[in-house]
């Protein structure tokens, strides 16, 4: 057998937290508008079908933002044909074309998981007057 394949090249290593920070800083950050839980947003998401690329819009209420730094995500909930749909978007995903903030909501907590149990008029969120 060709010895090339068995060639072992090695290095001894350590894992450290500040190294993770360095790698996170290399991720290009999306410049999104500021929004938080309770806001209604439209996410313009790039979808690749074969070689074609198109943009899909997804509108709903932000029910949580979680994580920090380059790995932060947000969850958008909408009710489609009376079925609740939630999508989790990484904030810095290169597939996010843009995010539009449609309205600001008045809510008293950062995580709106209680919306999952509510339907109809109860599931409304009061809009903030700007």
């Amino acid at each position: 057998m060709q010895s090339d394949f068995y060639g072992i090249k090695i290095v001894v290593i350590s894992k450290k937290m500040d190294l993770v920070k360095f790698v996170n800083d290399q991720v290009t950050h999306n410049a999104l508008p500021s929004f938080k839980a309770g806001d209604t947003v439209t996410v313009h998401y790039k979808i690749r079908e074969g070689s074609k690329e198109r943009i899909q819009q997804y509108q709903g209420v932000v029910i949580t933002r979680s994580g920090s730094g380059s790995t932060q995500t947000f969850t958008v909930r909408k009710v489609s044909n009376s079925i609740g749909v939630e999508r989790i978007f990484p904030v810095n995903s290169p597939n996010i074309d843009k995010v539009e903030v449609n309205s600001r909501g008045v809510v008293r907590r950062a995580k709106l998981f209680y919306l999952r149990e509510l339907t109809g008029k109860k599931a409304r969120i009061k809009e903030k007057r700007v």
Binding site: G7, I8, K9, V12, I13, S14, K15, M17
Partner: peptide, 13 residues
């Protein structure tokens, strides 16, 4: 990869 944060590992190619 195996081990805790900051532990030593061996890489083989």
């Amino acid at each position: 990869i195996p081990g805790a944060k900051g532990s030593y590992v061996i890489l083989e190619k």
